[in-house]
Design a protein around this nucleic acid. Structure first.
Length: 420
RNA sequence: GGAGAAAUACCCAAGAGGCCGAAGGGGCUCCCCUGCUAAGGGAGUAGUACGUGAUAAGCGUAGCGAGGGUUCAAAUCCCUCUUUCUCCGCCA
């Protein structure tokens, strides 16, 4: 959420920045309601102050056994007046909140301008795309041939966009998870294992609700949602807290399964592990000081890249353009792994600085040297999506005979050098 | 799932319609005293959000788990919900 005061005081700047996102938000109603809100508050609080004063007076008179029936009658009327104004204020604030919750974050000035993902800017590459002297297979074929991935069974027991892992497939997924967590904890991240269901307040806090409700799985008969990413439970760990400045940055890594409706991607990536309703992911989350959050974004991205470097998988890093940056983010780097079957790079991590956008929604602050509270900056990035890493390994490490070589760093987790 | 108890400031805890934004204790901060330490004495200790103001001081409003209600007036009475604890049932 943006700061209401800032929006009202900087209408032109905010409008301009939203336009860069191709966002069609109209701020007129916000400004109008904000004015009305202030006027209402002034009015109602003046009346409340009066009422409080007279009530205190009544208390004294009662104690002195004086008659104060006329004051009580007066205050009864005043009370009704207050109620009317208060009700109006509630309506105004409710609507204002609704509007504010739907406004995306303002993008950073360093974000390249563009309409969609075609305008994203490549920053760097690691390794060359894997070369084959035969026609490489897609991971779903490899997985099926090795009998480690089974889509038919998943379709039977659940439905489309699910996969059952068997044998070394299941083990590979688990090996990658452990390798990632071990690497990140070795780099100073504290491991967290949160619930996979969260309440509505958490989903509001990180920005999944109210706008993206149709992509989330709500659980019947409860107020809970399946987590779409560990970002939600982990960022909300410190909701409604005032952190110690000296504790910043706080760094967490967390594995969770992630659940997404994929409402807007019917027909896309229908085969394989790339786009599933349930997938595994290790997430990196930081609570950073506002003065250096963009440096923290650089290091967070680098820390996610470490995984691909250690796995020796070719990848590139792109800076998302203004039209492609997500709703809550101020600036985002995507890490894209080389996927031979797609003959292109595929997103495997998204690293974002949300600055104070989530912190304002979730009320996460710290106390500065002057004793004042300030909003923290929150960041997160996949470190990495595990299913897509499995897919990338199967494809990039495949051999002509249909086997898959196990990356060196995973051998100790897998117990074998080759998946046959 | 059933039955009971509880939720008050950094922590413990009193308070049972108005003199309560809240006794008392611990802790913490500052001061005094004492070679050091321990002990002792004194003062301070609701943060926060919003409105107003100059992004100050000050003033005002809200705030005793959350949300409603009763009342001129609610920590205190009523309703709903949440969480925690104890017991029973079920269960990995």
């Amino acid at each position: 959420m943006l700061d209401l005061r800032f929006v009202c005081d900087n209408i032109d700047l905010v409008t301009e920045k939203l336009a860069k996102r191709n966002s069609k938000i109209n701020l007129d109603e916000v400004v109008e309601l904000a004015k009305e809100r202030r006027a209402s508050i002034k009015g109602v609080e003046t009346l409340k102050a009066e009422k409080n004063q007279v009530s205190a007076q009544i208390a004294v008179m009662k104690r002195n056994k004086q008659n104060c029936d006329d004051l009580i009658v007066k205050m009864k009327i005043k009370g009704e007046e207050i109620k009317t104004l208060d009700d109006r204020l509630v309506v105004i604030e409710h609507r204002l909140n609704e509007l504010m919750l739907d406004i995306p974050n303002l993008i950073d000035d360093s974000v390249p301008y563009g309409l969609d993902s075609n305008d994203n800017v490549e920053l760097r590459r690691y390794l060359e795309p894997t070369a084959f002297d035969y026609t490489p297979k897609a991971h779903w074929e490899i997985g099926e041939n090795l009998q480690i991935l089974n889509v038919q069974q998943a379709a039977k027991i659940t439905g489309a966009r699910f996969t059952v892992y068997h044998g070394f497939g299941a083990r590979l997924e688990r090996a990658i998870m452990n390798f990632m967590l071990d690497t990140h904890t070795g780099n100073g991240y504290s491991e967290v294992f949160p619930p996979f269901m969260v309440n509505k307040d958490s989903m509001l806090g990180t920005g999944q609700l109210p706008k993206f409700e149709e992509d989330m799985y709500a659980i019947k008969n409860t107020d809970y949602y399946l987590v779409p990413t560990a970002e939600v439970p982990v960022t909300n760990l410190h909701r409604d807290e005032i952190l110690r400045e000296s504790d910043l940055p706080i760094r967490y890594c967390a594995y969770t399964a992630c659940f997404r409706g994929e409402a807007g991607s019917a027909g896309r990536d229908t085969r394989g592990l790339i786009r599933q309703h349930q997938f595994n992911k290790v997430e990196l989350v930081k609570f950073a000081h506002p003065s250096n959050s963009f440096e923290e974004l650089e290091s967070l991205t680098a820390e996610a890249e470490v995984i691909l470097k250690l796995l020796k998988l070719p990848y590139r890093v792109v800076s998302l353009c203004s039209g492609d940056v997500g709703f809550s983010s101020c600036k985002t780097y995507d890490i894209e792994v080389w996927m031979p079957s797609y003959n292109r790079y595929v997103e495997i991590s998204s690293c974002s600085n949300f600055i104070d956008f989530q912190a304002r929604r979730a009320n996460i602050k710290f106390r500065d040297a002057n004793g004042k509270t300030q909003l923290v900056h929150t960041l997160n990035g996949s470190g990495l999506a595990i299913g897509r890493t499995t897919a990338a390994i199967l494809e990039n490490y495949q051999n002509a005979d249909g086997t898959v070589t196990v990356p060196d760093v995973l051998v100790k987790y897998m117990g074998v050098n080759v998946i046959k």
